[in-house]
């Protein structure tokens, strides 16, 4: 790891003032520190976001869920309040990495990184979530812009994630057994107006995406059988040493069915 200078601000403003093109925000460090150790990143300064109260905490009021950017995967996975209104989301958080990674890694860091194999982006797309930053609010659709790419500018900081709880939600993930990341994961939710959201992780060569075909099929009939005759086009899906695009296309269907089956 190249030399760097560590900062520990206690407010969003103080953190934003420290930001520069050469500096990086540090949340759980579960992606950034391994990257720095490999010398693939060499920020001049690290701005630790784990000591800023405004970025912490989970609130659920009625069906409105707000999760601070610095909440860890483990805090989200064990939140009874979120589980009560959106159990698919707590299930997803509880299946990220391993217990030690979940104790440190945060939702803000995960979505800012937008790894194509990360889990949260699929759920936030399906739920139609809003991403709050220190300067603006963005719909999830506009926030995730491609492989490891988001709409964030260099100094912008994710402060929270918000969504309206659906009637039902479920997530099913085919884990890469070595990395624990999603080889394909599908998040489904059914809203009170009958509409359905489907987000796919780990499969798109441009990152997580929604599947309008699956959404339409499930809107009429929210059962695994409704996905039986869907065929997923493998063009635009990732092919790598772990799975071909065709294999992932089939996994999307299988994971989609399981997610619907598990949805509560």
């Amino acid at each position: 790891m190249y030399a760097t200078t560590y900062h520990r601000p206690t407010s969003v403003d103080e953190a934003a003032k420290l930001a520069s093109e050469e500096a990086k925000y540090l949340s759980g460090g579960q992606t950034l520190l391994p990257t720095m150790k490999q010398r693939l990143a060499a920020p001049s300064d690290l701005i630790d976001l784990r000591h800023i109260d405004a970025l912490k905490g989970i609130t659920v009021e009625g069906g409105n869920v707000r999760i601070g950017a610095a909440c860890t995967h483990s805090e989200i996975a064990t939140s009874e309040a979120i589980k009560g209104v959106c159990p698919g989301f707590t299930y997803l958080a509880g299946h990220i990495g391993d217990p030690a990674v979940r104790h440190m890694g945060t939702i803000g860091g995960s979505i800012a990184n937008n790894d194509p194999a990360a889990d949260y982006p699929s759920a936030l797309l399906a739920l139609g979530a809003t991403i709050r930053t220190n300067t603006r609010s963005l719909a999830a659709e506009d926030f995730f812009t491609g492989l490891f790419e988001t709409a964030l500018d260099e100094r912008e900081m994710v402060t929270a994630v918000e969504f309206t709880a659906p009637d039902k939600s479920g997530y099913s993930k085919f884990r890469n057994p070595a990395s624990r990341y999603a080889m394909t994961g599908v998040f489904v939710c059914k809203r009170s107006d009958g509409s359905v959201g489907v987000g796919v992780a780990g499969a798109g060569s441009d990152g997580a995406f929604r599947s309008p075909d699956m959404e339409r099929a499930l809107a009429g009939d929210f059962t695994p059988a409704a996905l039986e005759n869907i065929s997923i086009d493998p063009s635009g899906l990732m092919s790598d040493m772990h799975a071909s695009a065709e294999y992932r296309a089939n996994l999307i269907k299988v994971m989609g069915k399981r997610a619907v089956q598990q949805a509560v």
Partner: peptide, 14 residues
């Protein structure tokens, strides 16, 4: 809490 000490800076644990 259990954490991987190879993926945390000493400064973070200050």
């Amino acid at each position: 809490k259990a954490v991987k000490s190879c993926t945390m800076l000493a400064a973070q644990a200050n």
